[in-house]
Nucleic acid binder design. Structure first.
Lengths: 232, 232
DNA sequence: GAGTGGTCTAGACCACTCA
DNA sequence: GAGTGGTCTAGACCACTCC
């Protein structure tokens, strides 16, 4: 740590404590940055950083002129790391295997074109594959790649490398949208994931863009036993 | 906006652009803060802030002495806002209703005691309730409250106010763990959520603590049509 | 117009890590 | 030991918002 200087972490912790212990009740206007800076013997910038982090985590709400007040509903946010499926599996100490199921180039179905914002005449690469952990089905990946945006994907067979890993190094993105949901396994998913038809699946969907230009849409289905965990 | 001064946002965008457009390929060591500060005509602190934010979103990895390099696997993180169910519903323009199903005080079942780290002799308050959007079942909430930590809950009937809302204003927490999963609806859940038995449910579970002291465990089950969406 | 947060600067020192 | 990021300070000016 440090000598006499006050860290923004210390200030943040202390302010969080006062909020948690109701020294400052929800809705309370807390002292301004100047005042707190004097109280803690720190520069205003230091207090500012502490308060900004508290605001980012939803504990306080800040408005110019009005000041900073304790949030009425601590609408905290949770942060999930979006892992590469292979890493996720090996990180658990399991053996990772990959199997390509199909790879075709065609015009997109209407649903897919609509989701990606493509015209029906643009070509897309459709890849379906399976990720296994210690031999057991872990994730069924169903992916559409916009060949207009990523023409190089045409040359890749995806027989040994998964589309995710390939895209990471060949097609950067600037924006992404994630959706998580539950769904019932259809016949094929049931067979591939080794569950019974109609069984619940945990499904993640991701669309990525590079500056408005759609790159890829992927649907990742896990058996219902899958857990997505985070802590804050 | 600004006059001539360079915002950390501008720097951040520009650096992100260089990474996205492969000016700096994954794994590349990018120039140090001093150099970038000179290039952009900004203070080092400004460049530092831009780089820190890029690091937080996973685009670059920073290490003292080594420097900053473009991440090999842009393991970005997604941020989900954890809403209060009532707000979530009214935010969609739907009418929110709440119904208490049961409220009992007892010793915890073993599973619950284990999850919360309680002894089997400590009393817990078990509340089950339903949240409705425009009259349709939206979420079935099954909650356990640690009465040792929140004795005041004894006095609350939860007949008109949901446990979540009550806890927000009466029992602060410092830590939380979220788990999301898919599950098949049992008979009761099916009836309550108006789906067929065995239908997929989207389930969120949350445990909260106030400094190591367990506060509450809640299981929130939604019909399979529920979507959890985030964008980055 | 005035009050509060938002950001930038220039300089300093520290802490971590690599060689 | 030395290089790079991490943080703090003191001061300044700006931007947003309320009155």
């Amino acid at each position: 740590m440090k000598n006499g200087r006050i860290s923004f972490r210390v200030i943040k912790e202390e302010l969080a404590r006062r909020i948690a212990e109701r020294v400052w009740a929800p809705g309370t206007l807390i002292p301004g940055e100047e005042v707190l800076a004097r109280e803690f013997g720190a520069a205003r910038a230091t207090v500012n950083r502490a308060l900004q982090e508290l605001a980012r985590s939803g504990l306080v709400e800040r408005r110019r002129k009005s000041g900073t007040r304790v949030a009425l509903h601590p609408l905290r946010e949770a942060r999930f790391v979006i892992p590469i499926v292979g890493n996720e599996i090996t990180a658990r100490g399991a053996e990772y295997r990959y199997r390509l199921l199909s790879r075709t180039i065609d015009r997109p179905p209407e649903v897919i074109a609509a989701r990606l914002g493509l015209s029906l005449s643009e070509l897309v690469l459709h890849v379906r594959c399976l990720h296994l952990a210690d031999g057991a089905p872990y994730q069924f990946e169903d992916r559409w790649i916009n060949l207009t945006a990523v023409p190089a994907a045409r040359q890749e067979s995806f027989e040994t490398i998964g589309p995710n890993e390939w895209l990471v190094t060949h097609a950067p993105f600037s924006d992404a949208e994630f959706t998580f949901m539950a769904a019932a396994a259809n016949e094929e998913e049931a067979r591939l994931l080794d569950v019974s038809a109609g069984a619940p699946l945990f499904v993640g969907e991701r669309i990525t863009w590079l500056k408005e230009k759609p790159i890829t849409l992927v649907r990742m289905a896990h058996p219902g036993t899958h857990r997505m965990v985070t802590r804050l």
